[in-house]
Amino acid sequence: MINKVITKGEFEKFISGIIDANETIGPKQVDTDRDGKPVYQFRQVKSFGEMDLDYTITYSSVKNFFLPFREELSRFDFSEKDWDQTVEYRVNPRAIIGVRPCDINALNILDKVLIGGAYPSPYYLARRRNTFLVGMDHEPLEDCFCESLGQDTVHRGFNLFCEDIGDKYYLTIMSSKAFRFLENVKVTDPTKEDDIKFHERRKRLRDMFKTKVEMTGLQSVMDIEFKSPVWKKWGDKCLNCGSCAMVCPTCYCYGIEENIDVGLKSSRKERVQYSCNLVDFAEVAGGHNFRPLKEDRLKYRYYHHYRGFAQNGDEPICVGCNRCGRACLAGINPKDVINELQLES
């Protein structure tokens, strides 16, 4: 890890250079909400000006650039008495600019699950390794609670991270690629003054958090409160619409679909993003549903998020971005659900 500082003018030159040379994804205003406020999403960008690096939060996370909603795992080509299987996972390199600490932490969690286990996913790994990731800090929103989970700062899982210290960015360089690219522009070693500004910035951001979620002992509480009436209360409101899982930066549960093409000459096997909230997630051949009730399914998503599974070292997988809470029409959000569980126990 090497630290440098860069003026905002030089930074624009640097990012423009990356955009010109690579397929680049960045935060962009795509819509306006009911109150006239901008709605942001990660989208492909062609110029620096198209992005809004001071964006509040993207409606959906950056996850689906690594785990597409639908992706081909393999295809079978049929011949008269036989078939051939093709597995293709290679992808072209690209850059993603302006990813927030919580979203990078989310990718680090997905790394554990999808490439750290016994059977690393070549599809995810190829996308991760071929992405040049530039992270940026930001002022938290009223309902952000990443700080409660210790996910408000990030120290790995990116190529370059930029913290705003006024007219300059304080850079954390994590890869030789980023170091080499920065040779194209003017960067300097941080001065004592820059270091002070860096600490002041971090402290100011930390003090801005208004939403606190009580995480103490939550993992065992999730086990103990497995039959809590809290689940029925929220389960009755839950639409089981999967919106939370779609916008979540870490929800990765999926299903496999196989479809024969119209010409009957080949078939595609696809990974399809799913959600444990959806009605048939735990349905088995023959029709039995292991989670027949809305509350079972809602609970299950929380159980996965806050208890954690062995595959990621029994750690919670939530990063506290509250995208699920914002997307939920029924007003179900981690802060209320968890704080209620914690008080009850």
Partner: peptide, 25 residues
């Protein structure tokens, strides 16, 4: 078996209920 919201979120749409519409999604 699941509702339209799944596909709507995958499209990256802004929720029309949030925008003030009635939506049966």
């Amino acid at each position: 078996k699941y509702p339209v919201c799944v596909e709507c979120k995958q499209k990256g749409n802004t929720c029309v209920v949030d925008l003030g519409e009635i939506c049966l999604g």
